[in-house]
Design a protein around this nucleic acid. Structure first.
Lengths: 235, 235
DNA sequence: CGTGTGATTGACGCCTGTCAACGTCTGTGG
DNA sequence: CCACAGACGTTGACAGGCGTCAATCACACG
């Protein structure tokens, strides 16, 4: 699983990917580089399981990972996606709890494992880093609260439109306005919190209405305004 | 609004209510006592509004406060309840954002306003406190993620049963097994994320099934097992 | 006693989940 | 190179959970 062809250096990676670590001192970078371990994972591989005790957190260098919880009947609920520069698993480390989510690779990924001790010593010794990490947790908390409200009050149709816009904002479009993240219909359903069939029907409605175009998993965003409106995303 | 009859001392309050501040040094307590301001609020009063910039956070000494977001058509979504010992508004202070929720008094409340500077200086100077605060944010984040999954996957019936159990766990029962928190039907609906009428119908179903008993806003929990089962709360 | 807020009940219908069948594509093994 | 299995996508039928609207009741308060 290790990949020795390309071991990213934290200094450059944190700058390129604008990660939390970008303000560390050279000494701290050295420490981090020394203690981290790099891995390569292909789509479908699991990084950690809900309910397991994890011994460190992970910093994504390349690729996309989905973070999800398993609900009734094993149905996944996708909580968020992690992309280069993001740190995952820090929640369980800081609060010293078992992992409350699982994480699985969506797009082939290079990531670095950071042992719990290393992360915690950074938190304790570097107030700025500690503050940044706290901000991150607070930001995620704010987003989670917003999503609770959405999912509790909006229809599936509204949520799907909203998710499409969010995906566009987070992962961007290619030159043909196609979403730069490729998800199965089931994964889309597991973000929105609905059945796969509902996603399929609504997507083809959106297509009929000229809001998007579909070609397999490629979703072309044609009318951002329209989707934003359907998603009730003003205010 | 100020109440000079009873100004709680942080030392004793934090111990009694088991708050985050319980591990401060005497010097820090002095600082906190000096800079805080105490207020008394009656049911229905608003502490802060979503979208406003708040200049500090609040520590609850007595009473109950609901934290909620306003969604479509002004419908409330209750995110959590704060009770004595809890700190609210810290998220906006730490991440330096506008308040992403509003908070309103459910039961007459005494609380202390802690200026942003005071809180932040504690965070920067006391790694233990900082760590505790981070744990708190992480804990709330874990709970929010769990609730996203619930609300996306469970039926209204299941969620209502679950909420009743949660309310029992958080606020306890009196000698007659009646919930120690008094909420309107609408507030219950705004936790569960449903219509008031649905809550009413389901509550009376639960009553018919002998799971609870109703007397106005008093909800008597008669069958914890049964509710837990309906709420799918094992695993 | 009028007014307002909250609680309750009934009618109605649509959104959405479930089930089932079938089509499509990809990779694998014979 | 073909057959097959398995994963994924699509479509239709159907029912029921739950939201919405409206009317009425209960109760507190000025």
């Amino acid at each position: 699983m290790k990949n020795f062809q390309h071991i990213p250096q934290c200094e450059t990676c944190s700058l390129e990917n604008n990660s939390l670590f970008r303000h560390l001192s050279q000494e701290e970078f050295d420490h981090l580089n020394y203690h981290k371990t790099c891995y390569f994972h292909k789509r479908g591989e699991i990084i950690y399981h809900e309910g397991s005790r994890i011994s460190g957190s992970y910093c994504i260098n390349r690729g996309i990972i989905k973070i999800y919880k398993t609900g009734i009947d094993g149905k996944e609920q996708i909580i968020l996606f992690a992309k280069p520069g993001d740190i995952i698993g820090y929640r369980s480390i800081l609060s010293n709890e078992l992992a409350c989510t699982s994480s699985k690779v969506i797009e082939d990924t290079t990531l670095c494992f950071i042992p719990a001790d290393t992360l915690i010593s950074l938190v304790k010794s570097n107030p700025n880093f500690s503050m940044e990490l706290m901000k991150l947790a607070c930001k995620e908390l704010g987003e989670a609260n917003a999503y609770i409200t959405d999912i509790a009050q909006k229809t599936v149709r509204e949520r799907l439109a909203e998710i499409l816009i969010h995906l566009k904002d987070n992962f961007g479009l290619d030159q043909d306005n196609v979403l730069q993240i490729s998800l199965t219909r089931e994964e889309l359903a597991n973000i929105v919190g609905t059945a796969t069939e509902s996603v399929i029907r609504l997507l083809s409605e959106f297509k009929t209405d000229g809001l998007i175009d579909l070609n397999g998993r490629k979703i072309k965003i044609q009318d951002v305004q329209g989707l934003t409106k359907i998603g009730n995303m003003f205010r």
